[in-house]
C-alpha cells in the first residue's frame, strides 16, 4: 500500500513558532488516525517564512525561483494538505495569502485540506471560518469540516485539554475525508486550455 502524501503548509514567522507547533500536532494526529484506519501517511513540510522573498518576486514579476517551484510541486503532488497560519488583523497573514495567490491555478482543485490557525487569544478563532474556509472553497479544495484554532493559552494547558481533543477530532474527520477521496491525480489548467484550442482549431478551416 502506498502512503497518503500529506503536504503541510505552515506560515509561522518566529522560531519556535506556535503555528508550526500546531501544524506538527495536526500532522501527528492525522498520521495516527490514518494508521488506525489501516493507511499510512507520508508528510512533507512547506515552511513559508524562508520563501518570503521568492513569493514576493513571483507576485511582482511572475518569476518563480527554484525553491518556490519546489514548494509548488510539493503541494501539487499531495493527496491532502494541512494549512496553518497565524491570525493577523482578523484574517490570515499576508504571507500565507500571498503563497496561495501565486500558487498555480487548479493546484488545490479537489484537494482535501485541513485548516488551522493560531493567535494570541481565542477571540480570533472565527478567522478559520471567515477567512481560511472561504478562500480554500474558492480554490475548489475540499475543506475538512472541523478546523482547529490554538490560542497561546491553549499551549499552556495540560495534555488531554480541550485543544488536544479538538486536534484529535479534526484529524479523525480529515483522515476519513482523505480515505474517501483516495490518492489524487493532479489537474493541469494547461490541459483544459489546450482542449479548448484543439476544439477551436477543429472548426477553424
Amino acid at each position: 500500500m502506498t502512503a497518503m502524501k500529506l503536504t503541510i503548509v505552515t506560515g509561522g514567522l518566529r522560531e519556535p513558532s506556535s503555528t508550526r507547533l500546531l501544524a506538527d500536532r495536526l500532522t501527528t494526529a492525522a498520521t495516527r488516525e490514518l494508521e488506525r484506519l489501516g493507511d499510512q501517511a507520508d508528510p512533507s513540510f512547506v515552511e513559508l517564512r524562508p520563501l518570503g522573498h521568492p513569493i514576493m518576486d513571483a507576485m511582482l514579476t511572475g518569476f518563480v525561483g527554484e525553491a518556490l517551484q519546489s514548494a509548488f510541486d510539493t503541494v501539487a503532488r499531495a493527496d491532502g494538505v494541512i494549512a496553518v497560519t497565524p491570525a493577523f488583523n482578523a484574517s490570515f497573514s499576508g504571507l500565507f495569502k500571498s503563497f496561495f495567490d501565486v500558487l498555480p491555478e487548479q493546484t488545490l482543485a479537489d484537494m482535501p485540506v485541513l485548516i488551522g490557525a493560531t493567535g494570541g487569544t481565542e477571540r480570533h478563532s472565527l478567522v478559520l471560518e471567515h477567512a481560511l474556509r472561504p478562500m480554500f472553497s474558492y480554490l475548489h479544495a475540499i475543506v475538512s469540516p472541523r478546523a482547529v484554532y490554538a490560542a497561546t493559552g491553549d499551549f499552556g494547558s495540560p495534555t488531554g485539554s480541550a485543544l488536544a481533543n479538538r486536534i484529535t477530532t479534526a484529524a479523525a474527520d480529515f483522515a476519513r475525508l482523505l480515505r474517501a477521496c483516495g490518492p489524487r491525480a493532479g489537474r493541469e489548467a494547461a490541459d483544459e486550455d489546450l482542449a479548448t484550442m484543439q476544439r477551436l482549431l477543429g472548426g477553424a478551416t
Partner: peptide
C-alpha cells in the same frame, strides 16, 4: 522584472 528577483537568481 525590476524590484523583484536578484540579478544572480
Amino acid at each position: 522584472y525590476g524590484h523583484g528577483p536578484s540579478l544572480e537568481d
